[in-house]
């Protein structure tokens, strides 16, 4: 295989974009050229990466999961309430992740067993999971867990659950050499997902389903099982994101991650996944997530307001897609011209 092949991939373009971006930001503010600062900056958007990476798998199947932003809050409040109930914080973390998996199972079953548009299903669960997350403290009170404080668990409704142990909170800040734990977790997660996607049967099934679901059925691909697993992974990633945010903000809240939908989907789409299914890579999503995350950090650093950043992010998403579409049209046009030019010889 010729190595120049890699120079023409979308991932390589993203690497170039990332480097150029960091250099430009570095010219404006030299602190950006410090690796430690850069790595530290990732803490601000690690949750986006946790959720976006497995969402790539779902989007490859031509599906979508917009409920992940609610699963974040659900996982967070679960973690907090379990801890308040006296459960060891790491067991609580495991419960929170399990809740994410169950949420994913619910989505996955619904998507796999019916022909209802995944957008509608996860829109429904987006409301449902958010509602459960908001209502859970009060529900536990109703169920007789009144023992915790005079106002009951419902007191945690609005201010969130704080005072989580340092052993947990510290995870979000600890580093190996200069690399933060959460970023290491992102890399491990990306490696696992990438192996799953590109090296296993399951991963191949995802592409086959995304390109031609009917042919997948006719070829004996276990379509339903594969879809369920994809949504389970998405739920798990969202729970990971919610748990991370809990540690990062040192508070468990039902509404964590509510505004993350736009950056999550932007990362996946900018990473090269086609919203219509059949294409996308984990490394593309990771790189796109970093490009977007640093862009945000850089704009903040040079004094751009959060509001304007939101406008920029939206514009980046739309422009990237428009350019991609127009390049496709142009690519085909060129190919056809070439074939016509060769017609005398052909």
């Amino acid at each position: 295989m010729n190595w120049t092949r890699y120079l023409r991939t979308w991932e390589f373009a993203l690497v170039v974009l990332l480097v150029v971006e960091i250099l430009i930001l570095g010219m404006i503010n030299p602190t950006f050229l410090n690796a430690e600062n850069l790595l530290y900056a990732t803490l601000d958007f690690t949750h986006i990466l946790f959720a976006a990476l497995p969402l790539t798998l779902v989007i490859i199947t031509a599906g979508i999961d917009i409920s992940s932003v609610s699963v974040m809050g659900l996982a967070s409040i679960t973690l907090g309430l379990a801890w308040v109930a006296g459960i060891n914080i790491f067991v609580a973390l495991a419960i929170a992740l399990l809740v994410g998996i169950i949420a994913g199972l619910f989505n996955g079953f619904f998507v796999a067993k019916t022909d209802v548009n995944p957008l509608v299903i996860t829109l429904g669960t987006l409301f449902m999971f958010a509602g459960i997350a908001q209502g859970m403290p009060a529900l536990l009170d109703l169920l007789g867990f009144k023992a915790y404080g005079s106002a009951g668990l419902a007191a945690y409704q609005y201010e969130g659950i704080t005072g989580l142990p340092d052993s947990f909170i510290g995870l979000s800040e600890a580093t190996v050499w200069i690399i933060p734990y959460p970023f290491i977790a992102v890399l491990i997660f990306a490696v696992i997902l990438s192996l799953l996607l590109h090296k296993t049967r399951f991963g191949r099934y995802l592409y086959l389903i995304g390109v031609n679901p009917k042919a997948a059925v006719y070829s004996g691909v276990p379509v339903q099982k594969t879809l369920i697993w994809a949504y389970v992974l998405s739920g798990f990633g969202a729970a990971l994101a919610g748990s991370y945010l809990t540690a990062y903000f040192t508070s468990a809240r039902a509404d964590l991650g509510g505004d993350a939908l736009l950056p999550i989907i932007t990362a996946v789409v900018l990473g090269g996944a086609d919203i219509l299914g059949g294409s996308g890579t984990i490394w593309g999503t990771l790189l796109a997530g970093l490009v977007l995350g640093f862009l945000r950090q850089g704009l903040l650093a040079i004094g751009v307001t959060n509001d304007l950043i939101q406008v920029v992010m939206g514009a980046v998403l739309v422009t990237a897609m428009a350019v991609k579409q127009l390049m496709n049209v142009y690519g085909e046009y060129r190919l056809n011209r070439k074939a016509l030019a060769n017609k005398e010889r052909g």
């Binding site: 989907i265 919203i275 406008v311 939206g314 998403l317 739309v318």
Partner: peptide, 8 residues
Amino acid sequence: IMTLGTLG
């Protein structure tokens, strides 16, 4: 994608 972008 388009309307998600303009949402932002």
